[in-house]
């Protein structure tokens, strides 16, 4: 197994792990941080699949701007409602 493939394996594993963790957590702040980390890992993946230009765009837009949007939502939500601990509305 080549070192490159190992690196790819790590990137992919990290992506899936981050995504899973951020989707199941109940803590909005944690999820937001995880989402930014996910975006940065995704940028790394873009480099690995031969699209370095996209990596820049992903870091700036995907991780940066979107992350900021989620952070803003977190702030507004923690102000307006109690941090939701129980999820199911029904």
């Amino acid at each position: 197994m080549s070192p490159a493939l190992v690196l790819d394996g790590v990137v992919v594993g990290l992506l899936l792990a981050l995504a899973l963790r951020l989707l199941v957590t109940r803590d909005l702040f944690e999820a937001t941080v995880l989402f930014v980390a996910y975006g940065l890992t995704l940028a790394l993946a873009w480099v690995r699949v031969g699209a370095p230009d996209l990596a820049l765009a992903e870091a700036a837009l995907g991780a940066g701007v979107t992350g900021a949007l989620f952070l803003n939502a977190y702030k507004r939500l923690s102000r307006e409602v109690e941090q939701p601990t129980e999820e199911d509305p029904s």
């Binding site: 951020l22 989707l23 909005l28 999820a31 989402f35 989620f70 939502a73 977190y74 939500l77 939701p84 999820e87 199911d88 509305p89």
Partner: peptide, 9 residues
């Protein structure tokens, strides 16, 4: 996930 923000995630 019923939480709207997570749906957007």
């Amino acid at each position: 996930r019923a939480h709207l923000v997570w749906k957007v995630f």
